[in-house]
Amino acid sequence: MTKALKVVAVSGSLQRPSRTLALVEHLVELIGDAVPVQSHLIELGEVGPRLAGALARSQLPPEIEAEIAAVESANLLVVASPVYRAAYSGLFKHFFDFVHHEALIDKPVLLAATGGSERHALVIDHQLRPLFSFFQARTLPIGVYGTDKDFTHYRISDDALRARAALAVERAIPLLNLRSTAGRHPELVA
């Protein structure tokens, strides 16, 4: 019997409610429908005030250190940021600056982003994918991007966005390769 996959989701939005948060929660829910998960959500809007002044990991308060450790120990990351001036948010980058540079090697990462229009959709391939390539993480092939018009009252209302999210998760599940991951992470096997 397989234990739950430890999924850590990071929402880079600085506000609540948030379209980015809604997209992250939807992706985690879809993953949970496909495989057993134990999920943990990190909202940068909530942790940001305690994170922003730190310049070194040793300066992080214990609760933020615990969030960084959760990212490093996850079996799967779901990360999303709203687009600010053609890139992920500065606080999103600052958060990941504290993650150890070898902690995400071969870790699967599902990338997502939200923005005001379709013209920002390339943020996934031109900003997020290179960031996680630095970590030598295994970014999953399909990212999910949503625009403001895909949401109504901070809930996904567009069928095409739902379909993209479902396809991204459908294609991700086989790539998680739970059997080979279990060799490096015995906690996955009962």
Rank of each mutant, 00 (worst) to 15 (best):
F96S: 11
F95G: 06
A166N: 06
A168S: 14
L188H: 11
L41M: 14
Y88K: 05
H40L: 05
F95H: 09
E29S: 15
F151S: 08
T2G: 02
R16A: 12
A9K: 07
L21Y: 00
Y145C: 00
H120D: 09
N177Q: 13
L178H: 10
H126S: 09
H101R: 01
R171E: 14
G32M: 02
A163Y: 09
I124W: 06
D148G: 02
V169H: 11
E187I: 10
A182F: 03
K107D: 01
E25M: 07
V78F: 07
A80F: 00
H153R: 07
V7E: 08
A103I: 03
A86W: 13
T114A: 02
I173W: 08
D106K: 07
L30E: 15
Y154Q: 08
R164G: 04
L131W: 11
I42P: 12
D158N: 15
H94M: 00
A69D: 14
V10H: 00
N75A: 07
A4P: 13
L27H: 01
I42F: 04
V35T: 13
L30A: 12
Q38L: 04
S133G: 15
A70E: 13
V71I: 14
V189S: 10
V79K: 02
V28T: 14
V144I: 01
F95W: 10
L51R: 05
A22F: 12
